[in-house]
Amino acid sequence: MGFKLLSKLLVYLTASIMAIASPLAFSVDSSGEYPTVSEIPVGEVRLYQIADGVWSHIATQSFDGAVYPSNGLIVRDGDELLLIDTAWGAKNTAALLAEIEKQIGLPVTRAVSTHFHDDRVGGVDVLRAAGVATYASPSTRRLAEVEGNEIPTHSLEGLSSSGDAVRFGPVELFYPGAAHSTDNLIVYVPSASVLYGGCAIYELSRTSAGNVADADLAEWPTSIERIQQHYPEAQFVIPGHGLPGGLDLLKHTTNVVKAHTNRSVVE
């Protein structure tokens, strides 16, 4: 069995187990497998329904001669939608809004960016022009300005110390501490036991640490421990890039980060 097929099978099995364990909360999309990078042309966006009122959005972007996937989250909030992270750029984010209108038909009224990198804030200006209120932590807003990236308009308070959590509509926002970046936030959907790890969490097929220019490698494993301790009931975990899975993604990420750190020390 090929690795790609095995990865998709694991996603399907995880979703099936969740649907059985929580039949009222989960209505997993039966329309197909989780979209992969090879299936999404740059400039297009796919939506994948995880649970009743919960979707991931998947886009792709060219970077350094390669094409990478990027995940975000959409959560229903009454007759409105909360968006977590842009679709990595203005063109993708405009396509995301169009796809949401086509498939869901509810307005996106608020959006949260989970850290300051372009795959999370690139497209904020498109959201703002569409009347979406954009939010991020003060740290993310400051770092985005320093980096020359787009800056969300509103500040999220109460997320300055490791372990801080605040309720934001249908989700809980959690600051686990520094990891992929010093400002990275985690998003949890309690009604569906869905954990969105953003770039602080890796997919299972990833074996290298990737972009760690703004990471705190020493603190990252401790931050992941905080996530595990705060959300032990999480059933569906979405990484910032690639295929979702279960809580095993947290341990896998820790292993990859520690291996990278150990290699760096040896070198």
Rank of each mutant, 00 (worst) to 15 (best):
residue 180 H to W: 01
residue 121 V to P: 03
residue 115 H to L: 01
residue 249 L to G: 00
residue 236 F to Y: 03
residue 251 K to V: 13
residue 1 M to H: 03
residue 62 S to V: 08
residue 257 V to W: 04
residue 96 L to S: 03
residue 116 F to L: 03
residue 177 G to K: 01
residue 63 F to Y: 05
residue 208 S to Q: 11
residue 182 T to Q: 14
residue 229 Q to M: 14
residue 155 S to C: 15
residue 134 T to L: 04
residue 14 T to I: 09
residue 70 S to H: 04
residue 143 L to T: 10
residue 265 V to Y: 06
residue 233 E to H: 12
residue 188 Y to D: 01
residue 182 T to C: 04
residue 182 T to K: 13
residue 80 E to S: 14
residue 7 S to M: 05
residue 71 N to W: 01
residue 5 L to I: 15
residue 252 H to W: 09
residue 9 L to I: 11
residue 265 V to N: 12
residue 174 F to P: 02
residue 11 V to Q: 06
residue 145 E to W: 10
residue 28 V to K: 09
residue 120 R to K: 04
residue 251 K to L: 06
residue 254 T to W: 09
residue 157 E to V: 14
residue 35 P to A: 08
residue 96 L to A: 12
residue 185 L to F: 04
residue 32 G to L: 15
residue 88 W to S: 00
residue 63 F to L: 05
residue 135 Y to Q: 01
residue 84 I to L: 13
residue 213 A to D: 14
residue 90 A to P: 10
residue 204 L to Y: 08
residue 94 A to V: 11
residue 96 L to E: 01
residue 237 V to S: 01
residue 264 S to A: 08
residue 240 G to M: 02
residue 118 D to A: 09
residue 183 D to T: 00
residue 222 T to M: 09
residue 183 D to S: 00
residue 80 E to T: 13
residue 197 G to W: 01
residue 77 D to S: 06
residue 258 K to H: 06
residue 43 G to L: 11
residue 15 A to H: 15
residue 81 L to H: 01
residue 87 A to Q: 12
residue 149 N to A: 09
residue 211 N to R: 11
residue 84 I to H: 00
residue 82 L to S: 14
residue 237 V to R: 00
residue 3 F to G: 07
residue 45 V to G: 04
residue 129 A to N: 13
residue 114 T to V: 00
residue 53 G to I: 09
residue 25 A to L: 09
residue 183 D to N: 03
residue 229 Q to P: 03
residue 70 S to V: 03
residue 222 T to I: 10
residue 155 S to L: 05
residue 7 S to R: 07
residue 249 L to N: 15
residue 17 I to F: 04
residue 238 I to D: 00
residue 171 V to A: 10
residue 104 I to L: 14
residue 202 Y to R: 10
residue 85 D to E: 15
residue 100 I to T: 10
residue 14 T to M: 05
residue 219 E to F: 15
residue 14 T to Q: 06
residue 227 I to T: 05
residue 26 F to T: 07
residue 141 R to I: 07
residue 135 Y to H: 08
residue 95 A to W: 12
residue 266 V to Q: 14
residue 200 A to E: 02
residue 158 G to R: 14
residue 11 V to W: 08
residue 211 N to H: 05
residue 148 G to E: 05
residue 30 S to Q: 09
residue 65 G to A: 06
residue 221 P to Q: 14
residue 79 D to F: 13
residue 38 S to Q: 12
residue 109 T to F: 09
residue 180 H to D: 01
residue 34 Y to N: 04
residue 37 V to I: 07
residue 162 S to K: 14
residue 86 T to K: 02
residue 105 G to L: 12
residue 192 A to W: 07
residue 172 E to F: 10
residue 127 L to G: 02
residue 62 S to N: 11
residue 104 I to V: 12
residue 130 A to R: 09
residue 218 A to F: 10
residue 35 P to N: 14
residue 144 A to R: 10
residue 259 A to T: 07
residue 117 H to I: 00
residue 159 L to N: 00
residue 250 L to Y: 05
residue 175 Y to F: 14
residue 117 H to R: 00
residue 4 K to R: 04
residue 105 G to R: 09
residue 77 D to W: 09
residue 180 H to I: 00
residue 101 E to T: 10
residue 78 G to V: 11
residue 250 L to W: 01
residue 247 L to W: 08
residue 191 S to M: 07
residue 168 F to Q: 04
residue 228 Q to D: 06
residue 144 A to D: 04
residue 157 E to Y: 15
residue 99 E to M: 06
residue 239 P to I: 01
residue 207 T to M: 11
residue 238 I to W: 14
residue 37 V to S: 10
residue 206 R to F: 10
residue 142 R to A: 09
residue 21 A to F: 14
residue 18 M to I: 05
residue 23 P to F: 06
residue 156 L to W: 02
residue 213 A to L: 10
residue 217 L to F: 04
residue 78 G to D: 07
residue 196 Y to E: 00
residue 211 N to K: 08
residue 74 I to T: 08
residue 222 T to C: 06
residue 222 T to L: 09
residue 70 S to L: 02
residue 155 S to Y: 08
residue 148 G to P: 09
residue 222 T to G: 10
residue 43 G to Y: 06
residue 140 T to Q: 02
residue 72 G to W: 00
residue 158 G to E: 13
residue 58 I to V: 06
residue 27 S to T: 08
residue 97 L to M: 04
residue 109 T to V: 13
residue 106 L to W: 15
residue 211 N to S: 10
residue 170 P to F: 05
residue 147 E to T: 09
residue 113 S to W: 03
residue 143 L to I: 11
residue 156 L to K: 03
residue 72 G to S: 04
residue 157 E to C: 07
residue 239 P to R: 02
residue 204 L to E: 09
residue 156 L to F: 10
residue 66 A to M: 07
residue 11 V to D: 04
residue 120 R to G: 09
residue 112 V to D: 03
residue 77 D to N: 04
residue 67 V to L: 06
residue 192 A to V: 09
residue 196 Y to G: 03
residue 103 Q to W: 11
residue 153 T to A: 08
residue 19 A to W: 08
residue 258 K to F: 13
residue 45 V to N: 06
residue 140 T to D: 02
residue 256 V to W: 04
residue 114 T to R: 00
residue 7 S to T: 06
residue 174 F to Y: 13
residue 140 T to M: 01
residue 29 D to C: 13
residue 107 P to A: 15
residue 204 L to M: 13
residue 115 H to V: 00
residue 178 A to Q: 14
residue 159 L to K: 02
residue 181 S to W: 02
residue 114 T to M: 02
residue 128 R to Y: 07
residue 260 H to R: 08
residue 95 A to R: 09
residue 216 D to G: 11
residue 191 S to K: 08
residue 233 E to K: 12
residue 190 P to V: 12
residue 235 Q to E: 13
residue 136 A to T: 04
residue 85 D to R: 00
